[in-house]
Write a protein that binds this DNA or RNA. Structure first.
Length: 919
RNA sequence: GCCGGGAUGGCGGAAUUGGUAGACGCGCUGGACUCAAAAUCCAGUGUCUGUGAGGAUGUGAGGGUUCGAGUCCCUCUCCCGGCACCA
């Protein structure tokens, strides 16, 4: 055994051992229960960053832990290899995205291997390979046949200078990131996948996922957004023709408070008004430059203009003005909304801004309760006043004043959130007094009778637009023929291969210039035709890779029967940022595959662990052109205020000022990723893994700091040194108490306390800590598993070897410690397990379980509190009953001191824990 | 803005789910070893107060429930993730 811990040697040796034994190859034939452990595959951005190390170490710990507990484990790995960064790299370095991507994969694969992950590399895949993306195309064609895929117009960001479509990420404050040009909205045709056809099932099946975090299920449910409302129409006459303006609302109870209607700029009514009204025309034009992003839509200044047109209120018959609003989107719902300024915050602000009338039609339950509470109590109670936040002195009798303060509805003042609360109708004619559901029922019935509307279920979820006007993606298998229109590529001509030698230059899709790709013959009529140049959203690639891993990689089928053995994934691990889109798309894709008879499962991921993001500082600066550039944290010097908070930064290169953007996810595009390579080279993979797991629990956001790496490494060195010592003692083959004392160097020295108690205490500590660690593993709280291993080493190291049998306690404890630590630090534990002669392969060892006999104790310590404050403690027999404990506590000097001769009002005894004396 | 989550010493975090707040580690301070340094080992370390035993105070802010609140309830502040073309 080497006297010093040398991670380079032992890690290489351990990895070679696993390689030789093909230790992580998964076979679908097994008597053992299966465990499919999957970490989200990486985008090959160039180098791993700490988020990857965190993600894959968590997965590896769980995979190895299950392997040791007797499961048949599959842990695969691959590459989410299509995407925008490859094109950006091509623009910057003039290298084809394919070459850049394959080089990155090679480098990152070697990085992953050096971390010692228990991956079955025989199942590696890359989504940019034709044998993979062929099946994207094949399934897309099946969806087309079933009417799940279809074509319609989509709105995109258009950079007028580069003449190209921009991703949302590439639009900074309404301008193109490279050109600084003001971005325009453009409508172009594109393909959509009908995920809304599965909305009901996607929502309902969340209940079949007990192994998912509640927060993720809540987010998905809110995203799908099932709502029960009323769709109805405002009739109007235009150019002598009777027309209807349709809207949808979930608040039909407020319909009598409608004072205007707002339509999108692209709505036919707005378009009509624009023809004769220059003001409307100008506004419609201006709306072309508003953002397509929801976050921008929600925060931007709400603006509008009166079209001068009027529609008829379907129930009152009143004439209602029609406005164009920049906050109404043509693509969503009807492209028009009813406005009830009294009970909707957005409408309220809009009405006040443009001096439109506000009509109150709802009185809330709170108002009713408040009024009732006041009248019944006569006196104003503080609790009631504070609950309703009425600024009036408590205890007075000014009931009418309090009522007027709370009940006052004043459109001249600011909006109050309570205006949007549910309640009962007022100022609503025949509907007065009806509560929400009654009012909605009555109003829907009346509208239906007039043929102007009905109840309708609506979803927030929209169909999935999959067309991307980009080169580095999976080609959409469509051929455009002048005679036959859009024709699907026949199955036997799949895959439509993407040429791998293009170099994008930022001005549109290079496929447009590739005659060899573009020109083809129409499969229907045989005439010359053009290929579709749009490629698929990369979320398509990641929507089914898990089922491909789990199958035999057949060239003649998307998946095979093996997928039904491994699937669903038993543990999926990935960043919380994927909580909605990726996970929802994957669930949808699985259900489509199931309906096509390809797979037999409804849901792809049985258990989900959402890893917290690894954050680092973000620094950026505007370029001369108005675009944006990012600086890596190592390129700048922080500027801090007196409180030590980061306020800005300076470039180390030229001392110029750089903007501080706060903390954010490590990413290639923001240049704030930390490469683990230096860490691995200096300290080894085990230290990197240990530190990452110890830093915080998996689900928690982690702000990157590397202080503490030393500590993790120190622990491994201490462990190594301790094992060296133990091996030396072992080699002396001690036969007596004297032998063991001589070997451990305590012979003839005085030992404090009673040496016979030490092994018992240490052994209990080991088993108790193991119990906690095993429990933490089930909770996937891995940072405290590391603490447990540290505690065990502390316990073993503190304990003097006095009797011959004490050495057995050490050997037992050490075997527990090594096995517990092995999923986190597989290399060092592999080496030590063999060195100390426990066996050949720690992976084949049984997982340790705490022994009841080691945990037993007959006396326990109880805490004594007086009025909930800690005042002392006492030792009592484990079997002592409540009355005995109460007597002991009352007799305790600390309690006597507090009582000062008085008597206790009450004594609370919590068995095994504490006694609280109330005086 | 909307949806979801978070906030505990100088720092990362722990707390058996309402029962001893600060486990474990980092950092810092002091000491041992050394010609010296590194490494290693030992001791201390929330804050205030006290020579000391001790006392007071303390889990983002404010209020509430309880014998007892980091944990439950209400209100607020700040931070992070997502918002449909980053992946």
């Amino acid at each position: 055994m080497q006297p010093n811990y040398n991670p380079k040697d032992i890690e290489a040796t351990a990895q070679q051992y696993w390689e030789d034994k093909q230790a992580f190859r998964a076979e679908a034939k097994s008597d053992k229960p299966k465990y499919y452990c999957l970490s989200m595959f990486p985008y090959p951005s160039g180098k791993l960053h700490m988020g990857h190390v965190r993600n894959y170490t968590i997965g590896d710990v769980l995979a190895r832990w299950h392997k040791m507990r007797g499961y048949n484990v599959l842990q695969p790995m691959g590459w989410d290899a299509f995407g925008l960064p490859a094109e950006n790299a091509a623009i910057a370095n003039k290298v084809p995205p394919a070459k850049w991507t394959y080089d990155n994969i090679a480098y990152m694969k070697q990085q992953l291997k050096s971390l010692g992950f228990a991956i079955d590399w025989s199942r590696e895949l890359a989504t940019c390979k034709p044998d993979y993306y062929k099946w994207n195309q094949w399934l897309f064609l099946r969806m087309l046949e079933k009417g799940i895929a279809y074509k319609k117009t989509q709105v995109v960001n258009w950079d007028p200078v580069d003449q190209t479509v921009l991703a949302n990420e590439q639009v900074i404050d309404g301008r193109g990131w490279r050109t600084g040009a003001i971005v325009e909205k453009r409508e172009i045709p594109g393909y959509y996948l009908g995920i809304t056809q599965y909305a009901e099932e996607l929502l309902a099946d969340l209940d079949k996922l007990p192994g998912w975090p509640e927060r993720v299920k809540t987010m998905q449910a809110n995203w799908i957004g099932k709502s029960f409302g009323v769709r109805f129409a405002f009739p109007y006459t235009l150019d002598g023709k009777d027309e209807k303006l349709w809207v949808y609302t979930t608040r039909a109870d407020t319909i009598m408070g409608v004072t205007f209607v707002a339509v999108a700029a692209e709505h036919p009514l707005a378009q009509h008004a624009a023809k004769s009204n220059a003001q409307v025309a100008a506004f419609v034009e201006k709306c072309k430059h508003t953002s397509v992003m929801e976050a921008d839509m929600a925060t931007m200044e709400k603006e509008g203009v009166d079209t001068g047109l009027k529609v008829t209120h379907p129930l009152t018959g009143e004439q209602v003005p029609v406005w164009v609003g920049n906050y109404v989107l043509m693509g969503y719902g009807e492209g028009a909304v009813m406005a009830v300024p009294a009970h909707d915050e957005r409408d309220f602000g809009f009405a006040k801004k443009y001096k439109l009338s506000i009509k109150r039609v709802i009185k809330t339950y709170d108002e009713l309760n408040f009024e009732k509470g006041l009248r019944e109590n006569h006196l104003l109670e503080p609790a009631l006043l504070s609950k309703y936040r009425v600024p009036i002195a408590a205890g007075t009798e000014h009931i009418e004043e309090a009522l007027s303060l709370y009940l006052r509805f004043d459109p001249d003042e600011d909006w109050k959130p309570s205006y949007a609360d549910y309640g009962f109708c007022v100022n609503s004619g025949k509907y007065d007094g009806l509560i929400y559901q009654q009012a909605v029922d009555a109003i829907a019935a009346d509208l239906k009778a007039k043929g102007l509307g009905d109840k309708q279920v609506q979803w927030r979820l929209r169909d999935w637009g999959v067309s991307r006007q980009r080169y580095w993606g999976c080609p959409i298998p469509i051929i455009h023929c002048d005679t036959c229109g859009s024709v699907p590529v026949p199955d036997d001509q799949l895959p439509v291969k993407l040429p791998e030698d293009c170099v994008p230059d930022g001005s549109g899709n290079p496929l447009h210039k590739r005659a060899d790709f573009l020109n083809c013959t129409c499969p229907k009529c045989g005439k010359p035709a053009k290929r579709e140049t749009d490629t698929m959203d990369t979320f398509v690639d990641s929507s089914w890779y898990y089922s491909r891993y789990a199958s035999g990689f057949k060239s003649d089928a998307m998946v095979d029967e093996e997928t039904n053995y491994w699937m669903p994934v038993d543990q999926y691990i990935g960043g919380i940022e994927h909580a909605i889109l990726h996970l929802l798309y994957s669930r949808f894709w699985t259900k489509v595959m199931r309906d096509l008879g390809l797979v037999k499962y409804d849901e792809p991921f049985a258990n989900l662990l959402t890893q917290g993001m690894v954050l680092n500082h973000i620094f950026s600066r505007r370029t001369d052109k108005g675009g944006i550039e990012y600086f890596a944290p190592e390129e700048v010097e922080l500027v801090k205020d007196e409180a030590g908070r980061v306020t800005g930064a300076k470039s180390l290169a030229d001392g110029s000022t750089v903007d501080y953007q706060g903390m954010g996810t490590m990413s290639k595009s923001k240049h704030n990723g930390v490469d683990p390579q230096a860490l691995i080279e200096q300290y080894g993979a085990d230290t990197a893994r240990l530190f990452m797991m110890f830093a915080s629990p998996p689900e928690q956001t982690l702000e990157w700091v590397d202080s503490g790496v030393e500590g993790a490494h120190r622990f491994l060195k201490r462990l190594w040194n301790f094992c060296v010592l133990i091996q030396k003692i072992q080699e002396t083959n001690p036969q007596s108490d004297d032998d063991i004392q001589k070997a451990s160097g305590i012979y003839g020295k005085h030992i404090m306390g009673s040496p016979s108690q030490y092994p018992k205490v240490a052994r209990r500590e080991i088993h108790l800590t193991l119990k906690q660690a095993n429990y933490d593993l089930t909770k996937q709280q891995l940072n405290t598993v590391v603490s447990a291993a540290m505690k065990m080493l502390n316990a073993l190291g503190e304990f003097p070897l006095y009797r011959k049998e004490d050495f057995e306690v050490i050997l037992e404890g050490l075997s527990i410690l090594l096995r517990l630590l092995s999923p986190i630090c597989p290399h060092i534990t592999h080496a030590l397990w063999r060195e100390l002669g426990y066996g050949d392969d720690i992976l084949a060892a049984d997982w340790p379980e705490p022994l009841a006999a080691a945990l037993e104790q007959d006396e326990i310590e109880l805490v004594i509190q007086v009025n909930g404050k800690l005042r002392g403690s006492l030792r009592a027999a484990k079997s002592a009953d409540k009355a005995t404990l109460e007597q002991l506590a009352l007799a305790h000097e600390a309690v006597q001191k507090q009582l000062a001769g008085g008597t206790a009002k009450k004594v609370v005894v919590v068995p095994g824990r504490l006694i609280n004396v109330v005086i």
